[in-house]
Design a protein around this nucleic acid. Sequence first.
DNA 1: CTGAAAGCGCTTACAG
DNA 2: CTGAAAGCGCTTACAG
Lengths: 336, 336
Amino acid sequence: MSVDIKKVAEKAGVSIATVSRVFSNSDLVRQPTKDKVLKVSKELNYIPNPIARSLSRQLTDTIGVVLPDLVGEFFMDIIHGIDEEAYKQNWFVLVSSSHSKRNILETLIEFMGSGRVDGVILMVPQIDERIHEIIRRSKRPIVLINAGGDTNSSANFKIDNFQGAYNIVEHLIKKHNYKKVGLVEGPKDNYDAIDRSNGYLKALQKYGLNKNGSMITTGDFSVESGYHGFKKLISNKVKPDAVFMANDMMAVGAYQAAKEMDIRIPENIAVVGFDDIYLSQFLHPRLTTVHVPIVELGSKSVIHLLEMVSNKKKKNKPFTEILPTSLVIGRSCGCK
Amino acid sequence: MSVDIKKVAEKAGVSIATVSRVFSNSDLVRQPTKDKVLKVSKELNYIPNPIARSLSRQLTDTIGVVLPDLVGEFFMDIIHGIDEEAYKQNWFVLVSSSHSKRNILETLIEFMGSGRVDGVILMVPQIDERIHEIIRRSKRPIVLINAGGDTNSSANFKIDNFQGAYNIVEHLIKKHNYKKVGLVEGPKDNYDAIDRSNGYLKALQKYGLNKNGSMITTGDFSVESGYHGFKKLISNKVKPDAVFMANDMMAVGAYQAAKEMDIRIPENIAVVGFDDIYLSQFLHPRLTTVHVPIVELGSKSVIHLLEMVSNKKKKNKPFTEILPTSLVIGRSCGCK
DNA sequence: CTGAAAGCGCTTACAG
DNA sequence: CTGAAAGCGCTTACAG
């Protein structure tokens, strides 16, 4: 610090314009001049001030990340993917999340309205008219991650919940020949949960298993709700021979319930989950589940956002990419 | 955007100086003037440009966070604590981590040398002379988190690994009366691991248990090394009746080994860990371990850093705070 | 290929 | 209490 472009120019015997050009890699500078400037800069330990640069160029080389929360591996992986990709492209990452005291919308508006970032990656459970409004009016691009609601007029990256659920239920039916597959679904108002339930239903239908209402119960993605949901299903008159827990946390609850009731997985009943959380590999037996590419979700969002920033992608052209999931086979489904 | 201080000044019939003063809450402005400016600003949707503000004030209201990695709950909690506290105080957070391609030192230098942040929270496994050099020469304050090595000349926040280990081993000895307490320690060059080993040794000494070399083996904090370390200890001539795994991940390995060998925890042997990772509450039996206040580590660092930034704390006055841990009692130690 | 100068949008000492 | 003006450290169209 303290050493600025003027000092360098002076010492190198050139104008500040030339110094500036050297550092922005302009090809308007002759090699000898460039060498001299670079040499002096090294001696003086000069680093161009990014703030001044930002003010002048009206660009910050920084992307904002707005998340609903900063807890759990999901968000860690997202940030990880974003940071890694941003770094590759020489960008900075400003993070922000909502807390009790903070409102996502406010943060978003602050980010967008100020010159602090050139674009934003936004993750909200559901996009509503106010968010659409912000996206529409904003000069800076926004990429949405896993947003529910009407995403037809924005840039989106999502996880293929439907297909993931379909695949794992199909695995239960086709590979293991289970006829009575139960479901403990997620919250009714959660888009991920809804898509997973639909994938489940689609698989049942495809294989001609009739959809038995009593084989489905609703949880809230928590361990406890998985515990109770599982207990409820197996106390029905018609017991399922396999249960799809709509996320791994609920599957953990199912394991606890099974242990308590001396029910063996998968000998007495198969259990599968969704998310492939870190914990799931340590369950006994290892949980069969659906892997979701979270890190990739983060990095792809960055790539797309930066293309929008540089106008390689039109910022108001709607776009949606749905990232495929993959099956993680453990022993809990009956596989060896 | 696009609406700047000039437009507001014009429309409100004042100078830009006055508008500026209103937004920096100067008490040099009469209430009616202030009201008028605020009203016009609202109408025009004016938000002061933070970049211009930063350039002029030579302050960014942003802190940089440099972490060794962006994986795992530990780092998530750190960021969580930092973000929450920074937000409370109206600051922004720029994160950066090292990857394969990135070097921490480089990132740090870039952060410090540019005007991009007003201070940095740095987490490095070990601080060496080059980092001391940077801290010494930097105009902007740096707070170190959990750094090993010579931290006597910097500001530091750490976890009390020694006392935590001492306490949990004491619990094994005093509460449960175990006489042969084994240890699977962490890497020899890891400061956390060393302190934990020392806490263990101190407890043995305090209670007059002789330190039996064959009761100690070295792991690397991974699940696998815990698995092997545990097996090694129980295949000794003298079997331990309790084992302190120096972190929870290794404890997970111990559980796997025990399950495989049909050894029951805690009936046949007690097992305890360190870290209180999320997973540990789902182990059967629930793992007795040491909780470390990571979120608090992050938030305290921010508080201290901001005091340094505002010169309430002298930036070159060495400072170290060691945060206490707490015991988390599960059934794995023998407690009900 | 290089330089002088205007401009990015603020803050703040100075003068009144 | 308020304003004119210099300054923060760059970039870049313009002129040569």
